[in-house]
Write a protein that binds this DNA or RNA. Structure first.
Length: 442
RNA sequence: CGGAGUGUAGCGCAGUCUGGUAGCGCACCACGUUCGGGACGUGGGGGUCGUAGGUUCAAAUCCUAUCACUCCGACCA
């Protein structure tokens, strides 16, 4: 992409309403624009990151055996009356009427709808287990949206729903998502710690919030420091191996980790002093098992091997890609701007032409732009007629992992400069070697 | 939903107390000099002062209503 033809409305000054760093940087980098309280337009740079994150979520969901579909944003109130939640949900639900005065709502979540879909087709235990998910916009009319996309009213959410014949099956389904989540967040460069969460009236131990530690986190968390050193489950993890998965989950839940709502002071006291970690955290995922809470009232049952009907055991599993963007920025930035992990960066390489209009630099840049693009790299080519300082500042602000800097001075010796955004390391590289350097990294 | 604020050019702000017909910095446009970490000069464009009433010879400024947004608290992916 040539910057001269892209739409990147960066701001030099910080809009006053932005309190936390991720919100400031997203506004300054031209990623989002507020359209209403807690409602944002995604500008091209922001959308690129959002799509990268969704792609990782999708890959890991699929790997764990989940199947993607897409449900609508607008739902019928009648559906929610079946579960009793139409009245129970309260003012957070955005209620609307269509032209026939039918009561509709903008979905805050999809348990009712997925249960309706399930019961319409699935009749036998032989069709289980089943895990269906979608990535769709949700709306929750928060009393006080704030912190940009961290707590917005409209937000993108991946929500998966599992169906099993019994609780043992549901536990395996739960564990699949548990491990998929560990992999998902790790791929985005995040250290997410699963913390025991409130299961409400269902009880049991099958509910976890995945928390990223960050100074600006909304909730106070307490955990054992060893979690930070744990290895991510391998890419070839066998998700059909129930014992193997249980072992992984056991390992990741053995040590103490809880948010303030679930904090158990005496259990925390048992953590060795040098391992005690008290910090603030951002919730980026939440998984839980809720049994037959929706299947029973809504009549989602299947015939079991015993020839009898069974209410299916369900669970739901959420990840907020839009919130994740803010969480990643909170965890990865410096005074100059965002530092994207390579896996979610909007572009792989920023190609800076320090003297647009100069025949030699133009030619070298054009060639590199073509060759890097052909090698499968997403390149943002800053071909604008701007001063070098502005180009450096822009590239740093929007956080592209690598900067290839081409100016007349270096080019006279056949060299370009390669800068790594995260470390600030700069090295001089012969022009002819740039493409091979990046080809290897893929 | 309780409490506190703010709405003046794309962004950040002054002007409001004490009414006299709107200004500064950045950004934007033109020309020139510049050009390896956010240059400088000259000239220029852009605002029904959130909206609606009212008071007044005269309202960004005073009064009333209303809308939007932000912050603190309670609540939440």
């Amino acid at each position: 992409m040539r910057l001269s033809r892209f739409f990147l409305p960066i701001l030099r000054e910080t809009p006053k309403e932005a309190e936390i760093m991720s919100h400031r940087l997203m506004l300054r980098a031209g990623m989002i624009r507020q359209e209403s309280a807690g409602i944002y337009a995604w500008l091209p740079l922001g959308l690129r990151v959002l799509n990268k994150i969704s792609a990782i979520v999708r890959e890991e969901q699929n790997r764990a055996g989940a199947v993607e579909l897409l449900m609508p944003t607008v739902q019928s109130a009648d559906l929610w009356r079946e579960s009793g939640r139409y009245d129970a949900y309260g003012k957070e639900m955005l209620r609307i009427q269509d032209r026939h005065d039918r009561e509709m709502l903008y979905g805050p979540t999809n348990e009712e709808m997925i249960t309706e879909i399930f019961r319409g087709y699935v009749r036998s235990y032989k069709d289980l287990p089943l895990n269906l998910y979608h990535i769709q916009w949700k709306f929750r009319d928060e009393v006080r949206p704030r912190f940009g996309v961290m707590r917005s009213r409209e937000f993108l959410m991946k929500d998966a729903y599992t169906f099993d014949i019994d609780q043992a099956g549901a536990r395996h389904s739960y564990n699949r998502m548990f491990v998929a989540y560990l992999r998902t967040f790790a791929r985005m460069g995040l250290k997410a710690i699963p913390m025991r969460a409130d299961t409400g009236p269902i009880g049991g131990d099958l509910s976890h919030e995945f928390i990223i530690l960050a100074a600006t986190g909304e909730s106070e968390v307490f955990c054992h420091a060893d979690y930070l050193d744990y290895d991510t489950p391998a890419v070839d993890t066998d998700f059909d191996n129930a014992e193997g998965l249980q072992g992984l989950v056991d390992k990741w839940t053995a040590l103490y980790a809880a948010t303030s709502e679930m904090h158990d002071v005496s259990a925390y006291e048992a953590v060795p002093a040098d391992k005690k970690m008290s910090a603030r955290g951002i919730e980026v995922g939440h998984i839980f098992y809720f049994g037959t809470k929706y299947s029973a009232p809504m009549g989602a049952k299947v015939m079991g091997p015993d020839g009898k009907d069974h209410d299916v055991h369900m669970g739901s599993y959420g990840i907020g890609p839009s919130r994740l963007i803010a969480a990643i920025i909170e965890a990865s930035h410096d005074e100059n701007g965002i530092i994207w992990p390579e896996s979610v960066a909007p572009f792989d390489i920023a190609l800076l032409n320090l003297k647009a209009g100069d025949a030699a630099t133009d030619e070298a840049c054009n060639r590199l732009y073509r060759e890097l693009s052909a090698a499968g790299r997403d390149v943002l080519y800053d071909d604008r007629d701007e001063r070098p300082g502005g180009k450096f500042a822009t590239a740093d602000l929007i956080g592209i992992p690598w900067q290839v800097v081409i100016g007349p001075k270096g080019l006279a010796d056949g060299n370009v400069e390669l800068k790594h955004r995260a470390t600030g390391d700069k090295q001089v590289v012969p022009l002819g070697e740039v493409v091979s350097r990046f080809a290897k990294r893929g």
